[in-house]
Computed example of a mutant assay.
Amino acid sequence: MRIGELAARTGVSVRSLRYYEDQQLLGSERSPGGQRHYAEYAVDRVRMIQQLYAAGLSSKTILGILPCVVTGEVTPELLGRLTAERDRIDRQISDLAATRDRLDTIISASTCVHEAGGHCAPEGGARPLAAEGACR
């Protein structure tokens, strides 16, 4: 498939696909006219690259991971890096869950009614939530 089709199927810009090639994360064959052509597996590879980028992995780390995705073999060094990345992602998930829980608490506590000073209070004028840093 050509680069435009890969971009459409994955929701990734043509520019990003070219960047992935520059970083050696993705390969293509060139036609005699110089057009890029990708194998069908490129769709899954681009989606995986996107997931790894979204999780905060660098292109260098992703480049190190890709061979073991194909072969299933992981060196002890790579296993250590993968474990560290997984642990970092777990911490990030915990932090995000704590933030979500805090927002849920604020949302369920009341509907904010803005007062003149920019603070919020539950309807009825009870204890201001701004003391906890909410609703500014």
Results as ranks from 00 to 15, higher is better:
residue 2 R to G: 05
residue 4 G to E: 10
residue 9 R to H: 06
residue 10 T to E: 08
residue 10 T to K: 01
residue 13 S to C: 03
residue 15 R to V: 06
residue 16 S to N: 12
residue 21 E to C: 02
residue 22 D to A: 14
residue 24 Q to E: 14
residue 24 Q to T: 06
residue 24 Q to I: 01
residue 25 L to T: 05
residue 27 G to A: 15
residue 30 R to Q: 15
residue 32 P to K: 06
residue 37 H to I: 13
residue 38 Y to T: 11
residue 41 Y to N: 10
residue 41 Y to R: 13
residue 41 Y to E: 10
residue 41 Y to W: 09
residue 42 A to C: 08
residue 45 R to E: 14
residue 47 R to A: 03
residue 48 M to G: 02
residue 61 T to F: 09
residue 62 I to N: 02
residue 62 I to D: 02
residue 63 L to C: 01
residue 64 G to L: 00
residue 64 G to Y: 00
residue 66 L to C: 02
residue 69 V to K: 10
residue 69 V to G: 02
residue 70 V to P: 00
residue 71 T to S: 15
residue 73 E to N: 03
residue 73 E to M: 05
residue 74 V to N: 00
residue 75 T to E: 00
residue 80 G to H: 06
residue 82 L to W: 07
residue 84 A to E: 15
residue 86 R to H: 13
residue 87 D to M: 11
residue 88 R to I: 02
residue 89 I to N: 01
residue 89 I to W: 05
residue 90 D to M: 13
residue 91 R to W: 03
residue 92 Q to A: 15
residue 93 I to S: 03
residue 93 I to W: 04
residue 93 I to F: 08
residue 94 S to K: 15
residue 96 L to R: 12
residue 96 L to D: 07
residue 102 R to K: 11
residue 104 D to T: 06
residue 105 T to R: 09
residue 107 I to L: 14
residue 107 I to D: 14
residue 108 S to G: 10
residue 112 C to E: 10
residue 113 V to F: 03
residue 113 V to M: 11
residue 118 G to H: 11
residue 119 H to C: 12
residue 121 A to M: 12
residue 122 P to T: 07
residue 122 P to D: 06
residue 124 G to A: 11
residue 124 G to E: 09
residue 125 G to N: 06
residue 125 G to K: 09
residue 126 A to D: 12
residue 127 R to D: 13
residue 127 R to A: 14
residue 127 R to G: 03
residue 129 L to R: 05
residue 131 A to V: 14
residue 133 G to L: 08
residue 133 G to W: 07
residue 133 G to A: 08
residue 134 A to L: 12
residue 135 C to A: 13
